[in-house]
Design a protein around this nucleic acid. Structure first.
Lengths: 355, 355
DNA sequence: TTGAAAGCGCTAACAC
DNA sequence: GTGTTAGCGCTTTCAA
């Protein structure tokens, strides 16, 4: 086959144009030290004139590193994941890495692709927030690409993990509600018994919180949510509020559920926090602007992203060593939805509530 | 240099294991037809046993196609861009493409990198939503990678473009407010005079709407916004409401500004829509759940994403042809924030408003 | 239907 | 400080 340039200008063309060898051009492109200023200038001019750009596929093949990492999340338009992605992109930048988004929809089939190394040798590492995949699938992966898991800690896992203490965080939320005098605290967001992920941990924290507050666990006010979208929170809350004995507080396992719950309350003229307090989880920006503003558990997303990227960096520098498990801090942020009930709030709540 | 396998298993190893040539394995991997079932089965078994995964960098280098497209947006955690990214990822999937996120922060320097072909030969195309880059920069790009622009149409551009009719959409929003009897309609979201992007188009539509409704343009109630974040909307609305003659309606150039505006109103006990109506732009999901729910202009995001991806696909199949400019549909969605004022709303609004 | 071999553009070992 | 060259793993032309 004869040389076909495909119209692309490569090192060779630049070298020819500058009257040097490809190696020298490569040295300039890669900012190597041992290039005389004069040569460097000449090469740089050739690069500019020919609009040369290195072929990253070729570089990646040769170096064995692509400078790409994948972020595999259920849905990029979930505010939590969008905010997290933002932080991951920024943290990755510090290493000169670009982030590639893998949207799994939380489907087992698509998560298996991530675990199976669908993008082998194209990405240097992957940050993975699994929904369907359980500990077994995670252990059995055959892929060699460094991986950092987000979300639930796979007990005894061999894969690096970054997360917050979900049980403790959920417990804090419930204790906060109890301390505010709430005695009938519902939960929205449990999932099918064997579901992996954070829902189980938050449910455990919810029960622990009730216990610590001396409150009884009432299965009838624990609502499952098929997904963590706003619509699910709305319908679950609607069901709770339409009961004969509605709760006086609700702990939602994420903020979208909580926003949906606020909506359901508003539609019924039920005052939050006057009649029912609401606490969410994730502290997405929407919490600060909803009406009422939404109390929430804030995981340190920037920290999580930073830690995940640094763990990857560590694996890339030195693949060996035991799996690490890093716990990022969290914090309860109290806002109107579970804050002190003001007089005018009470009055209005009383006037409007219970239709 | 001797063969260094780096521990990775390649076509060669599979071929050896299966007792066939490299070409045959390649044929199997690429689902070519002329492979006998027996051979295929044998090769497949070798692939499974060795956990072979094709090296995508090598494939990309050889084929000249990577299967990667970039989506370059200001911030991925802007709900509009997150939702758009979701649609782009799905649309790209239909072509077997993976999406890589480039976050520009709307900074000229970072947008120039996109235009300069920072990821040359690594991505097959780029969907770019510029903020800082003007028509000049866009025209002068030296990169050969197919690009589709989102947002403002660069007049007379040589680059494919997908967008909605921003002027018409903004006009509709204003006419809707006028039809509801509002006579003092403010705007939030203009930017510095020479700013590119959609803000100028929406400002033009705003003025056109006022004119069509027979209302005067009042510069004093047209608020600039440095960015399109919620906080900006809140402070701009606060300023408007604290005036001696506050507006009776506000058109915000995006939904985040509108959400911030709702917050400012709520903080002052001013009823929406009783005292002031609010309309946003983008129709992010948050609109459906805010209190009150938010009227908004809905660009068909799925359509935009689909069209952008298809334009790229067209360029990849046949690079030639004139630049295309496709207009996606939009629709005004009226919700509580600008809908009819109900009695109980009025009463409550009256009770609470103007402290 | 399968095999042999060239070469995509780059980096890095080695020579000068 | 600069040049020569092998080869990363794959696809593809050409031959068998």
């Amino acid at each position: 086959m004869t040389r076909v340039t495909r119209g692309a200008v490569g090192l060779r063309e630049v070298a020819g144009h500058a009257g040097v060898s490809v190696k020298t051009v490569s040295n300039v492109v890669n900012d190597y030290v041992h290039v005389s200023p004069a040569t460097r200038a000449r090469v740089q001019r050739a690069i500019d004139e020919l609009h040369y750009r290195p072929n990253l596929s070729a570089r990646s093949l040769r170096r064995g590193r692509s400078g790409l990492i994948a972020l595999a999340v259920p849905e990029i338009d979930f505010p939590y994941f969008a905010e997290l992605a933002n932080h991951v992109v920024r943290a990755a930048e510090a290493h000169g890495w670009t982030v590639l988004i893998d949207q799994t929809d939380g489907q087992a089939r698509r998560e298996d692709l991530v675990l199976g190394g669908i993008r082998n040798h194209l990405i240097d590492g992957v940050i993975f927030s699994p929904l369907a995949a359980g500990p077994k699938q995670l252990q059995e992966r055959t892929d060699r690409v460094p991986m950092v898991l987000l979300g639930e800690r796979t007990t005894g896992g061999t894969i690096d993990h970054v997360g917050i203490d979900n049980v403790e965080a959920a417990k804090e939320a419930v204790l906060h509600l109890a301390a505010a005098g709430r005695t009938r605290i519902a939960a929205i967001g449990t999932q099918r018994p064997r579901a992996s992920g954070t829902s189980r941990l938050r449910a455990r924290g919810y029960r622990a919180g009730l216990r610590a507050a001396g409150l009884d666990y009432d299965d009838s006010i624990v609502m499952t949510a098929k997904s963590y979208h706003r619509a699910e929170g709305r319908s679950a809350m609607a069901e709770l509020l339409d009961r004969a004995e509605p709760p006086d507080a609700v702990f939602c396992f994420n903020d979208l559920l909580a926003v949906g719950a606020l909506r359901a309350a508003r539609e019924r003229g039920i005052d939050v926090p006057g009649d029912v307090a609401v606490v969410g989880f994730d502290d997405i920006e929407e919490c600060t602007y909803s009406s009422p503003t939404l109390s929430s558990l804030r995981p340190d997303k920037a920290r999580i992203a930073h830690l995940a990227v640094e763990l990857l960096a560590g694996r890339l520098a030195d693949g060996s060593g035991p799996a690490q498990d890093v716990v990022a801090p969290h914090e309860l942020v109290v806002r109107e939805s579970s804050g002190p009930v003001h007089d005018h709030g009470r009055t209005r709540g009383g006037a409007l509530s219970r239709r």
